[in-house]
Amino acid sequence: MAQQVIIKVDNLVKKFGNFTANDNLTFEVFKGEIFGFLGANGAGKTTALRILCGLSSPTSGQVEVAGFDVYKQTNKIKMNIGYMSQKFSLYEDLTVRENIRFFAGIYGLSRKIIRERTDELLNKLNIEELGDKLISSLPLGWKQKLSFSIAIFHRPQIVFLDEPTGGVDPITRRQFWDMIYDASNDGITVFVTTHYMDEAEYCNRVSIMVDGRIEALDTPETLKKTYNAKNMNEVFLMLARK
């Protein structure tokens, strides 16, 4: 069975003045896949991520996200994706329920649906008692888990995660990946960046960007074979250190 393509990038180029941040990127991401987007700092990941989220236009090339064009249909793209980063997650001075209502409201969900899904979510995470607590009072691990849940609250086709586990303790980091697997099993495509190389192993496929280009893209298993490496950390060090 052919896999359904959910992100299609053809010869994407993005220039800032004389500097080429994305140099002719071509790749596809499949529906329901966990796609690892790796690269050294400054390799051009953030630039590409912003384009895929409809926040910035390419200089040239064709890019479709969830079936929508990144030049003309950015609002449709935004409605169909979720986004979470380590830096921007939730409003500290709003409660858990208020944050959910705020973000879900932006995506146009009805009050009834918001109420139903909020109860469902708090129940699933086993944190009913935290619903009326301020985000600022929660430990980091919980904030990150909630932030992820809220990013997929409107049931987007794709969720973009920008270093979602930075600084999180090792047990919570693994619980976070359990949630990623669940989302993927529900058919949500997960596009994730990370600096933890063990997490690269958890992805279905991984791309590694170096100096604005995709230097390698394959399953972790094949990449390790190709580069004759013990683990993804070795693959990364081989490719990214030039």
Binding site: G39, A40, N41, E163, G166, G167, H195, M197, L237, A240
Partner: peptide
Amino acid sequence: DEPTTGVDAVSRK
């Protein structure tokens, strides 16, 4: 204090 947080694996090394 956390000089390598958010830094890629190569630069950390």
